[in-house]
Design a protein around this nucleic acid. Structure first.
Lengths: 128, 128
DNA sequence: ATTGCTTGCTTGACAAACTTAGCATGCTGC
DNA sequence: GCAGCATGCTAAGTTTGTCAAGCAAGCAAT
């Protein structure tokens, strides 16, 4: 089976993680979002999106979420891979996943803490 | 007090036992903690945590407790098993320098935990 | 066209986190 | 004895995220 594009190296801050962080910022539950969008996005489906189980959520869903969260629709489209490389519309999409770090507006101190935490994770590499 | 003398073995100190021992050190009651955290952790719930009835208390709760007790949040996260780090990088060991998210291969679960942690950092260090 | 595969998406059920209300015991003082 | 209250704990319920199963539509190939 030609399995292209599905890089197994997950772990970058992707669309799902980004959407989850924003929902946490808004202090909403999955069902809150379902209600707020008037069933525009079911809670179970949003869960799958946030865990990157869905490769490309439809522009429809992304638009609903971008409006609810008041975030950039183009950015979501870019993260989801809907925008073709030739049709990149702004620098948010250009940066892709790595740049999402910057979207959190971390101070260097915060970043340092995060890195420490990441290394702690690494150090605790135990089977169970 | 039902849980006395069951955590004498150093090697098998659980999250609950650890938290209970610290609370005893601070000479606080369950309800003291509930009030000190401004209902951040209910006394009933803390009791369940200390008796290991709850497998993985949320990062939210762990952070609240780590602040109240002035102990390591990372340590609590590790004890709680929030940090699985299974299926992370093959030991490439590229954590030589502080990097961005993109250079750390996190599972989506780890990523979500990290994001929650990020929320706490921002909530605390906020204002600037 | 029809089969079969893939993928977005829904509904319903489930496990676990968390809350609320209350129990049992122990400690005071009466 | 008794009331009153504090402390730890639990039973039962609610909330939250996720999984399992399935439907509908698109696409490829026979």
């Amino acid at each position: 089976m030609a399995n292209e594009g599905n890089n197994s190296a997950e772990g970058t801050l992707t669309l799902g993680g980004y959407l989850a962080s924003i929902r946490n910022d808004r202090k909403m539950t999955l069902r809150d979002v379902e209600e707020a969008t008037e069933k525009g996005v079911s809670n179970a489906y949003l869960s799958q999106i946030e865990n990157d189980k869905i490769k490309k959520p439809s522009p429809n869903v992304l638009h609903t979420l971008s409006e609810l969260y008041s975030i950039s629709f183009e950015g979501l489209m870019g993260m989801a891979g809907h925008v073709t490389s030739s049709g990149v519309t702004n620098d948010e999409t250009r940066h892709g996943r790595a740049a999402t770090f910057a979207e959190h507006n971390l101070t260097s101190e915060e970043e340092k803490e995060l890195i420490e935490y990441l290394q702690f994770i690494r150090r605790n590499n135990d089977g169970a």
